[in-house]
């Protein structure tokens, strides 16, 4: 017991000397080692020393977005896991739940975030958006309207947008890897 008390006294001194790894970094490290991604998702770390900023590439092997290669940026702040990671699509894509600036509407990235979720849950959630785009609570209202009104036409818009065509005056990005 005595040893523990003296350890405690030294705590502050130690804390000052050592550059402290933040709680967010520790948690992200754990999340990353527990990642269990299907072949359709790959992470990329531009700076291997910075675990808090990376990209995720999703290449859906099914659904309307099959054949595309979609790149999302992840930025995790020091409040993680109390705040969700900031996730943006780096491309201009035609999707009811992604706006033209790349903001993503996914419940667990917003109002339904909770700290027991992890990066794996976010990534699986993102992939799900490509398998099941949903027209409720849309960020791209034109795309959502089209999905409701005419699913066939929506699908053809998706295919065209993925090849980099212009739809209703918006220039989309070619995402055919």
């Amino acid at each position: 017991m005595l040893k523990i008390w003296s350890m405690k006294k030294n705590e502050d001194a130690v804390a000052k000397k050592k550059p402290k790894t933040s709680a967010a970094q520790i948690r992200v490290q754990k999340d990353l080692t527990e990642l269990d991604l299907p072949d359709t998702m790959k992470t990329h770390f531009p700076d291997p020393n910075d675990l808090l900023n990376f990209t995720l590439t999703i290449t859906p092997d099914d659904g309307m977005y099959k054949g595309g290669s979609f790149v999302f940026s992840f930025a995790i702040n020091t409040n993680y896991p109390h705040e969700p990671p900031k996730v943006k699509c780096t491309q201009t894509i035609y999707h009811p739940n992604v706006d033209l600036e790349g903001n993503v509407c996914l419940n667990i990235l917003r109002e339904d975030w909770k700290p027991v979720l992890n990066l794996n849950s976010v990534m699986v959630g993102l992939q799900y958006l490509f398998l099941e785009p949903n027209a409720d609570d849309p960020l791209n209202k034109d795309a959502a309207q089209e999905l409701i009104k005419n699913r066939e036409h929506f699908l053809s818009n998706v295919k065209q947008s993925m090849r980099g065509y212009n739809i209703k005056g918006v220039q989309y990005q070619n995402v055919m890897g």
Binding site: A23, I26, R27, K30, D31, P81, H82, P115, V116, N118
Partner: peptide, 10 residues
Amino acid sequence: EGDVCGICRV
């Protein structure tokens, strides 16, 4: 999973 804190995973 039973004996780690779900928030910090420690």
